[in-house]
Simulated assay, not measured.
Amino acid sequence: MRGARVFDELAGRYDSWYSRHPITAENEVKAVAAALGGVDPCLEVGAGSGFFASRVGCRFGVDPSVGMLRIARARGVEVAQARGESLPVASGSLAGILVSVTICFLDDPRAALGEAYRALRPRGRIAVCMVPAESSWGRHYAALARAGHPFYSHARFYTVAEAGEMLEEAGFRVDSVIGTLTYPPWGLERPEDPEPYREGVHGFACLSASKGE
């Protein structure tokens, strides 16, 4: 995972984003929950501070950052230090996998999605939630990255189409794409319900995909 050391050193700063932007965070939680569909057992890849896992019923999480895992554990998530490209779980053991605001930080997202496919049981579900590169949020974060932002400078932002192609290459079928955040990062936050993703409209997208029989 890109910049794991930075996430160790600045875990508290990273996690504070959710308390500083509670309306936007809640909008994202609703989209994640809709895409994941309440499957159990569920594991979050790149669980970070456990914010999403703890809110949408993912009992398990992995992350390479020990600093992040400490916060996730305090939120009640059962965590292990591991990377998405090598999950410490048996094949076919999970009903759901969440990859939220993580694909942009993975060293090898295709390998991680292949690992997710292996770990999921037949008809298992994966939700890949992201800031699309084509959105105002993606462009804003990319600009911060170029300016040396401690987190985003380690990120590579993908379009929704690119994420969908990677899921399909791993063997998944993309069933739906859910969007939220119709306001820009500098706009007034407002509560929103998730809806079908529209390119150029939504700043947060969740691709919901399934494994075959």
Rank of each mutant, 00 (worst) to 15 (best):
residue 6 V to K: 01
residue 118 R to V: 02
residue 149 H to R: 09
residue 143 A to N: 13
residue 71 I to V: 13
residue 142 A to L: 12
residue 73 R to I: 10
residue 50 G to E: 03
residue 86 S to Y: 10
residue 118 R to P: 08
residue 75 R to E: 08
residue 184 P to N: 01
residue 78 E to N: 15
residue 111 A to L: 14
residue 73 R to M: 14
residue 174 V to G: 06
residue 8 D to Q: 02
residue 112 A to N: 05
residue 154 H to N: 14
residue 111 A to P: 13
residue 202 H to Q: 05
residue 149 H to S: 07
residue 45 V to P: 05
residue 66 V to C: 14
residue 144 L to W: 09
residue 39 V to P: 02
residue 149 H to G: 04
residue 184 P to I: 03
residue 154 H to S: 12
residue 48 G to W: 03
residue 74 A to V: 00
residue 159 T to W: 06
residue 41 P to A: 04
residue 176 S to V: 11
residue 138 G to W: 00
residue 101 V to N: 08
residue 132 P to W: 03
residue 106 L to P: 07
residue 89 V to M: 12
residue 158 Y to N: 02
residue 126 I to Y: 11
residue 11 A to I: 04
residue 85 E to H: 08
residue 133 A to Q: 05
residue 2 R to S: 15
residue 160 V to N: 01
residue 95 A to T: 11
residue 114 G to Q: 12
residue 28 E to G: 07
residue 200 G to F: 03
residue 105 F to S: 06
residue 80 A to P: 09
residue 76 G to A: 12
residue 80 A to F: 02
residue 23 I to A: 10
residue 7 F to N: 03
residue 162 E to S: 06
residue 124 G to Y: 05
residue 77 V to K: 08
residue 102 T to E: 08
residue 22 P to C: 08
residue 35 A to W: 11
residue 156 R to L: 12
residue 72 A to R: 06
residue 14 Y to I: 09
residue 200 G to Q: 00
residue 63 D to A: 07
residue 80 A to Y: 10
residue 66 V to H: 14
residue 212 G to A: 12
residue 34 A to W: 00
residue 79 V to A: 05
residue 58 C to D: 08
residue 166 M to E: 06
residue 128 V to N: 07
residue 23 I to G: 09
residue 13 R to W: 12
residue 146 R to M: 04
residue 65 S to A: 13
residue 129 C to S: 13
residue 210 S to M: 13
residue 126 I to K: 05
residue 98 L to N: 00
residue 209 A to H: 02
residue 193 D to Q: 10
residue 11 A to T: 07
residue 199 E to Q: 11
residue 124 G to K: 08
residue 78 E to T: 15
residue 198 R to N: 10
residue 197 Y to N: 05
residue 95 A to P: 04
residue 69 L to I: 02
residue 192 E to H: 07
residue 30 K to H: 06
residue 92 G to P: 11
